[in-house]
Simulated assay, not measured.
Amino acid sequence: MSAWLLALRAIAWREALRFVHQRERFIAALVRPLVWLLVFAAGFRAALGLSILPPYQTYITYETYIVPGLCGMILLFNGMQSALSLVHDRETGSMRLLLTAPLPRWYLLLCKLAGATLISLVQVYAFLAVAWAFDITLPAWGYLAALPALMLAGLMLGALGLALSSLIKQLENFAGVMNFVIFPMFFLSSALYPLWKMAESSELLRDICALNPFTHAVEMIRFALYLQWNGPAALWTALAFAAFAALALWGYDPARGLMRRKG
C-alpha cells in the first residue's frame, strides 16, 4: 500500500510542479473564461433572454448563467493540456519510465488523471473567486457542494484527453485534434445557452447538444452550485468517464502496442 500511495504522491507532485513552473498556463486558464464572462456576455445579454429554468427560481443575469459552463471550459482545456503533456512525455521517453513502474498500468494512469484533476480544481476555484470579485455571487454553500461535481466532470474530461493521447502519436497532430474536440464539445452544449434556446433554431442541434457528455457535466455543476442534485446528469457523466477511461486503458495496453509493431 505504501508503494501505491508513494506513486500517487509522486505523480501528483510532478503535475503540481509542472503547473507552478508554467505560470502562463494558470493565467491563460483565468483569462479565457474571464473574456467570455466580461466581454462576450455583455453582447449576448441582450440577444439571449433567459426564462426561469431549474435550478434557478428567479430570473438571472446571463453572466450568472454561463458561470457553470465556464467552469466546465476550464476543466475541458486543462484536461486536454494534461493529455498534451502526456504526448510530450512519450516523445521524450519519460512516459515509458512511468509506465514501466512495478504497479498496474491502470493505476499509474489513474494517478496521472487524479493529479491533473486536482490542478483543474485549483483553476476553477480561482476563477470563481475572480467572478465573485466582479459581483457574480452564488449560494455560499454552493462552492463546497459543487466540489464532487467538479471532480467527476474533471475526471471525465481528463479521461477523454487520456484516450485521445493514447491514439495520437505525434505532438503536432494532437494540437490539431484538441481544437477539433474542444470547440464542438464546448459550443454544442448548454454552457453558453440553454437547450430550449437551441431548439428554437434546430431540433437536430438540440438533440446533439443533449447527447454531448459535456452538456451533462455542465448541468451537474450548475445544479450543484445551487445545492441541488441532478441525478441523470451525474449518471451520464459517470458513464462517459467509464467509457473514456476504458478507451484510454485500451490505448495504453502494452500488448496492443506489441501487436502493432509486429504487424
Rank of each mutant, 00 (worst) to 15 (best):
L160N: 00
L160E: 02
G161Y: 02
L162F: 12
L164R: 00
L164N: 00
L164K: 01
L164S: 04
S165K: 05
S165T: 08
S165R: 03
S165D: 05
S166I: 09
S166V: 05
L167Q: 13
L167E: 12
K169N: 14
Q170S: 12
L171V: 14
L171C: 07
E172R: 15
E172Y: 13
N173S: 15
N173R: 14
F174C: 04
F174D: 01
A175T: 08
A175G: 10
G176V: 07
G176Q: 12
G176T: 08
V177D: 01
M178P: 07
M178E: 14
M178N: 14
N179T: 13
N179A: 12
N179R: 06
F180G: 07
F180Q: 09
F180M: 15
V181C: 05
F183W: 15
P184N: 10
P184G: 10
M185R: 02
M185F: 14
F186C: 05
F186R: 04
F186Y: 15
F187Y: 15
F187W: 15
A191E: 02
A191K: 04
L192Q: 08
L192D: 05
Y193V: 15
Y193G: 12
Y193A: 15
Y193C: 15
P194M: 06
W196M: 11
K197S: 07
K197A: 10
K197C: 00
A199D: 09
E200C: 03
E200D: 08
E200Q: 10
E200R: 08
S201P: 00
S202F: 06
S202K: 06
E203Y: 06
E203V: 09
L204D: 11
L204G: 14
L204V: 15
L205C: 11
D207Q: 15
D207F: 13
I208W: 14
I208R: 09
C209M: 13
C209F: 15
C209E: 03
A210T: 10
L211K: 03
L211G: 06
L211Y: 10
N212V: 01
N212A: 01
N212L: 00
P213G: 04
T215I: 02
T215W: 04
T215P: 00
H216Q: 12
A217G: 14
A217D: 08
V218L: 06
V218T: 13
V218E: 04
V218P: 08
E219G: 02
E219W: 05
E219C: 05
M220G: 11
M220A: 13
M220T: 11
M220V: 05
I221D: 00
I221A: 01
F223I: 07
F223L: 04
A224W: 05
A224P: 01
A224M: 02
Q228G: 02
Q228H: 05
W229G: 03
N230V: 09
N230P: 10
G231P: 01
G231A: 13
P232C: 08
P232G: 04
P232M: 04
A233P: 00
A234K: 02
A234Q: 01
A234H: 02
L235F: 08
